[in-house]
Design a protein around this nucleic acid. Structure first.
Length: 473
RNA sequence: GGUCCCGUCGUCUAGCGGCCUAGGACGCUGGCCUCUCAAGCCGGUAACGCCAGUUCAAAUCUGGUCGGGACUGCCA
């Protein structure tokens, strides 16, 4: 049997990292089993669904690298894969269920239903005990599924193992609203049947709805898919992942300069692992061994710090050419203008050293800023801590003399010219190189000094050291 | 309130009766390296929620308890 899995986002917001992770696990399962990964849009909530959210979600999924084989935007055997296009089908199913006696029309109003729920809570019982087929049958209003009371609903969840629900605790839930539109339960279940979905891996929040979906599937005369309920994602404080924890949308991370392969890797480690030892792994490695049955039961806390560390691992591992291409827009946005050809050459010269020091792409811009704009002032603390020390004027004077005498302007010759200074002047290395660093880059933290000077160019470097010397009087 | 799910370092996890004086990763931290910062290397910190039971032996099995979470809509 071919594995067919799906992700079914609702376009009522941007793609949440939790939804992205569920999509990721589905994708991994499909790839591992040479199955089909389907993308469907669950847009039955017409009030909140928008085309903008839908395209944002599709972009984010593509960015993460989860190519779908069937579904929205692709020619498939099931139409548009957008639920709003299939209302006729859902109505047909709902009415057939009524015809067969498995469902019924309910025209009780919200007030009456609220009263029943309140009574249930007061008496410590489940609302299902009260929301049942009313006495004389009605033939208008919403359609509810009638829950058979004969046996418990039991299923073997791939991650939870055996789960069981008593029918008395399952309410006769609405499948078709009184305006003829389907509820999530109906649309989702009908689609899973029609699209021949074999495995449903989704968030644990849907575990309590699963017996409803199973009963619905069975009353349609089909066998339910295998379920796998994934643990939920939380913030570092153990609370539900929300805006308070910072970014919750995949696109937020994309914009912050995270790499898709790092986000992919990190998300995969939340609730699953390649093996006992490996933290950094590729898509291919994950695909090779992934199994829903190995997913953890515990909820996971999303830790931006660990993601950032992991991103740095990926930044350092990429080719210099790719780093340069990816970093360029961030450098330009730091400067607020595009780089010209000469500036680009200077950047390329020092880029490998910047790459080693970058965890998030935007950091690259800050590190090379001194190369492309005049020092708009020294970092105050750096100046105070470094430049006001004794001996600094002599260090700068000596360095200027040595550098002026250089025949060429390469990092190696600059180093040769300056390397011996500390010993010659009887000073510690930091006493010599830190003042030069501050003079040249404006800060006590920068890429390596000699390479920075080489990339900056002879005239600018000497100009900056002379200027700093003047400032000291 | 009711139903269901979950419970190993601060966090992500390994562990599926003896290999556990509990392993790896992030974080934090001591040191080395070193022109600063990173990176790298060596070391440290820190966990089986609790109580019973089963067993020669329990983080691993059972029961209870406590704690956390989800759901409880004509939202998804």
């Amino acid at each position: 049997m071919t594995v067919r899995v799906r992700m079914a986002p609702s376009p009522t917001g941007t793609l949440h990292v939790g939804t992205a992770r569920a999509a990721l696990f589905n994708w991994l399962y499909a790839r591992h089993n040479q199955g089909t990964f389907i993308l469907r849009i669950d847009d039955t909530d017409e009030e909140r669904s928008t085309a903008e959210f839908e395209s944002e979600i599709l972009d984010s999924i593509r960015w993460l690298g989860l190519q779908w084989d069937e579904g929205v935007g692709l020619d498939g055997p099931h139409g548009t894969y957008r639920q709003s296009d299939r209302y006729g089908r859902y109505q047909e199913v709902a009415e057939a269920l009524v015809g067969g006696g498995a469902a019924y029309y309910d025209d009780r109003g919200p007030e009456e239903l609220d009263e029943l729920r309140a009574r249930a809570q007061k008496e410590g019982r489940h609302p299902a005990h009260y929301i049942r087929r009313p006495d004389p049958p009605f033939y208008s209003g919403a359609i509810r599924l009638s829950i058979p009371q004969d046996a418990p609903v039991v299923f073997d969840d791939l991650v939870r193992d055996r789960v069981s629900f008593e029918p008395a605790d399952i309410d006769d839930f609405v499948i078709l609203r009184s305006d003829g539109r389907p509820t999530y339960h109906l649309a989702s279940t009908v689609d899973d049947v029609d699209y021949e979905i074999t495995h449903v891996a989704r968030g644990e929040d849907l575990l309590p709805s699963t017996p409803k979906h199973i009963l619905l599937t069975r009353s349609m005369g089909h066998v339910e898919p295998v379920y796998a309920h994934l643990p939920l994602l939380f913030g570092r404080d153990g609370r539900k992942l929300s805006k308070r924890h910072g970014a919750t949308s995949l696109s937020d991370y994309r914009e912050a300069g995270f790499l898709p392969e790092a986000v992919f890797n990190y998300l995969a480690t939340l609730g699953w692992g390649l093996d006992a030892e490996t933290t950094i792994f590729s898509r291919e490695q994950a695909v090779a061994v992934f199994d829903l049955a190995n997913v953890s039961k515990n909820p996971a806390a999303f830790d931006p710090e660990k993601l950032t560390w992991m991103n740095g691992e990926y930044v350092r591992a990429m080719s210099p050419a790719r780093f340069n291409t990816l970093a360029r827009p961030y450098v330009e946005s730091t400067l607020g203008r595009p780089l010209d050809g000469d500036e680009w050459a200077r950047f390329e010269k020092i880029a490998p050293l910047v790459q080693d020091r970058t965890r998030l792409l935007p950091e690259a811009g800050e590190q090379v800023r001194f190369l492309f704009s005049d020092l708009d002032g020294y970092h105050h603390d750096s100046w105070e801590k470094v430049m006001t020390k004794e001996g600094v004027p002599q260090v700068l004077d000596t360095a200027i003399a040595r550098l002026e005498a250089l025949a060429d302007w390469e990092a190696e010759s600059i180093e040769t010219a300056l390397r011996g200074l500390p010993a010659e002047m009887g000073l510690g290395t930091a006493k010599v190189f830190q003042p030069l660093r501050v003079a040249v880059t404006g800060s006590s933290v920068s890429p390596p000094l000699f390479e920075s000077m080489a990339a900056l160019g002879r005239d600018r470097t000497l100009g900056r050291i002379r200027y700093a010397r003047q400032e000291l009087g």
